[in-house]
């Protein structure tokens, strides 16, 4: 037996089970991504601003004599969603780009780690980070609401949950764009898709109401292809106490998982083929 094959046997024995190995690698890369994110200043900057904005809801609501709790919570939800998306897009794209620019990805891919595994690790690490931040913002929201005497119901928690699912989808989109274009374009495209995604129902309804056949078809396809992000928005339900049914929550969750999976597969396919230069 040559030294090389003896060595091979040793490592293979050590890493029994291909799937376990792959999952382990994804977890290692994800863990490192979370660590990188929480050791970076940008994240805390975003978080501090988010908490300030949630708190500022108290001030804004004092300007009004009616509906103070509602105004407070509207501002709070807006803050959570705005900063959640900002972190998902800008931190996500930044971290992927940095790996290539700093050539850390070179050493990782020279190990027996496939590009897809790397990308999935990055994705799950980013989602974990974004969810962690969402959780902290939700805590701030609940604390401020309690202090101001605004109600916090199960629907509020469902709204945060769906926001988190939406952010998972947005992160997948951001990662997809950063696999083949510069950070600036990736950010522009991601923000564009995010905004269009929130309008996708309106486009469909506008098309349906329109006289023009072309417009009808355009509206229907825009809604089909763009992510339907309004489906994740339960904030009005939460703030105005509108009842929420089980499918209102379950359907968007499944939708987010399916849509994210498709986007991630597309991201992996482009990532496998690109030149790192």
């Amino acid at each position: 037996m040559t030294e090389a094959t003896a060595h091979e046997g040793q490592i293979e024995a050590a890493s029994n089970g291909g799937l376990v190995r792959v999952l382990g690698s994804i977890a290692t890369i994800a863990g490192n991504t979370v660590r990188e994110a929480i050791r970076s200043r940008v994240l805390y900057l975003f978080l501090v601003f988010a908490v300030i904005m949630i708190g500022a809801g108290v001030l804004v609501s004092t300007l009004s004599y009616v509906d103070r709790p509602r105004i407070l919570q509207d501002v709070g939800f807006a803050a959570v969603r705005l900063f959640g998306v900002a972190i998902a897009i800008f931190v996500g794209i930044g971290l992927v780009h940095k790996e290539v620019e700093r050539r850390t990805i070179y050493t990782i891919l020279s190990k027996p780690i496939s590009r897809s595994v790397f990308l999935l690790g990055k994705y799950f690490g980013l989602v974990a980070t974004v969810w962690l931040i969402t959780f902290v913002m939700a805590l701030a929201f609940v604390a401020v609401s309690r202090a101001a005497g605004a109600p916090v119901t199960l629907v509020h928690y469902a709204a945060f949950g769906l926001s988190a699912m939406e952010l998972g989808l947005v992160t997948a989109i951001a990662i997809f764009f950063s696999t083949f274009t510069s950070p600036m374009f990736a950010s522009l495209f991601s923000v564009g898709i995010y905004l269009a995604g929130h309008l996708s129902r309106d486009l469909r309804d506008l098309g349906a109401a329109s006289e023009s056949e072309t417009f009808k078809i355009f509206g229907a396809w825009a809604h089909r292809l763009l992510p339907d992000l309004e489906g994740f928005n339960l904030t009005t339900h939460a703030v105005y106490g509108i009842p929420v049914t089980f499918p209102d929550v379950a359907y968007p969750v499944l939708y987010a998982m399916g849509y994210s999976a498709i986007i991630l597969i597309a991201a992996m396919l482009t990532f496998e083929k690109r030149d790192f230069r």
């Binding site: 050539r103 050493t107 190990k111």
Partner: peptide
């Protein structure tokens, strides 16, 4: 790839 090691040119590590 489990038998090779690589140091890129001018790397900036984590």
């Amino acid at each position: 790839r489990r038998h090779i090691g690589y140091l890129p040119e001018g790397p900036y590590f984590y």
